[in-house]
Simulated assay, not measured.
Amino acid sequence: MRVVVDMNKCQDHGQCVFSAPEVFRMDDDGRLVYVDEPDESLRADVEDAADVCPLQAISIEG
């Protein structure tokens, strides 16, 4: 599984962090950082994160 975040769309709301904290986090500047190839066992959490993103900036490949 590969996670792709369109950083042009992302406005750092951070909703994804609550759904998948193992994959998404906010850095010290309040910007989103993420693991682009998380373990497959986290798929459900990543799918939830993509669903709750208010700007639909998260996609999953594979």
Rank of each mutant, 00 (worst) to 15 (best):
M1A: 00
M1D: 02
R2D: 10
R2M: 09
V3I: 10
V4R: 15
V4Y: 09
V5H: 12
D6T: 03
D6F: 05
N8M: 11
K9P: 03
K9D: 12
C10P: 12
Q11D: 14
Q11K: 15
Q11A: 12
Q11H: 14
D12N: 15
H13L: 14
H13I: 11
H13A: 15
G14Y: 09
G14I: 11
Q15S: 15
C16R: 07
V17L: 09
V17P: 10
F18K: 15
S19F: 07
A20G: 08
E22S: 14
V23D: 10
V23N: 14
F24C: 10
F24K: 13
M26F: 09
D27A: 04
D27E: 10
D28E: 13
D29R: 11
D29F: 08
G30I: 04
L32H: 05
V33A: 01
V33T: 14
V33E: 11
V33N: 01
Y34A: 01
Y34Q: 07
V35M: 07
V35P: 01
V35G: 05
D36M: 07
E37C: 03
P38S: 00
D39R: 13
E40H: 12
L42G: 12
R43C: 02
R43Q: 08
R43K: 15
A44F: 08
A44M: 10
A44K: 13
D45H: 03
V46L: 04
V46D: 07
V46R: 01
E47H: 03
E47S: 03
E47V: 09
E47P: 02
D48G: 14
D48L: 15
A49V: 01
A49D: 07
A50V: 01
V52E: 08
V52N: 06
C53M: 04
A57R: 02
A57V: 03
I58L: 07
I58R: 08
I60Y: 06
I60M: 13
E61D: 08
E61M: 00
G62C: 01
G62K: 12
G62T: 10
